[in-house]
Computed example of a mutant assay.
Amino acid sequence: MGDDYSNVSIAPCKYEYLDHTADVQLHAWGDSLKEAFEQCGMAMFGYMTELDSVEIEDVHEIEATGDDLEGLLYHFLDELLFLFSCEPNIICKKVEIVTFDVDGAEMKIKCKCYGEEFLIGKHPQGTEVKAITYSAMQIIDDADKHEVYVIIDI
């Protein structure tokens, strides 16, 4: 037989849920979808520091794959964020996609990231980006319009 819990009282509710602004939406565009993706990566780095303070001292390569355009954009930005988050904390002044394959079953990006190690004192500290989200992600790829919208968690 189980214990009798009938005399356990429930405390009155003394909490609530408050709205909290913890994200920012990036909106980027270009003459092609590839350029819109590149610009979105630059927008994220620009949110972390003033890009004018960044010098090109090194190049790093990243790759990202996705089953659809949203997944590809998410993984692309996530790889860029990972580049910044791991030692030696690379901040990029230029993001150049050298392979932009969106026609196959598995979409793929190969990208060269030009920049240097992020150093407090040299680079003004912007806002820390904690994560990329799929929330309200939008990709527009028309004949005359190539835009992306991504919400990042800050």
Rank of each mutant, 00 (worst) to 15 (best):
D52Y: 11
T21M: 07
Y17V: 15
D19S: 08
A136M: 06
A131W: 10
K112L: 15
K14E: 13
K34L: 06
E70S: 09
F84T: 06
Q125E: 14
A143R: 06
S53M: 09
K130Q: 13
L73Q: 07
E35C: 02
Q138W: 01
I62R: 01
I140H: 05
A11M: 07
A143F: 02
E79L: 00
D58W: 04
E117A: 15
V150Q: 06
E63F: 01
K108W: 05
L18Y: 10
L26T: 05
G115T: 08
S32Y: 03
A136H: 12
S135K: 12
F84A: 01
I151T: 15
E57K: 15
P12C: 01
D67S: 12
Q25G: 03
G104H: 13
K14D: 12
E35S: 04
A36W: 04
N89V: 02
S32T: 15
S135T: 14
I10C: 00
C40W: 01
I109K: 02
M107V: 09
E79V: 02
M1V: 09
L72M: 03
V54Y: 02
T65S: 07
D52H: 13
V24I: 15
D144G: 03
L72Y: 02
D144P: 01
N7D: 11
G2I: 07
I56G: 03
E57C: 06
Q39M: 09
H123Y: 09
D78H: 13
V24G: 00
T99V: 14
E57D: 10
S53W: 11
H75P: 00
V24L: 09
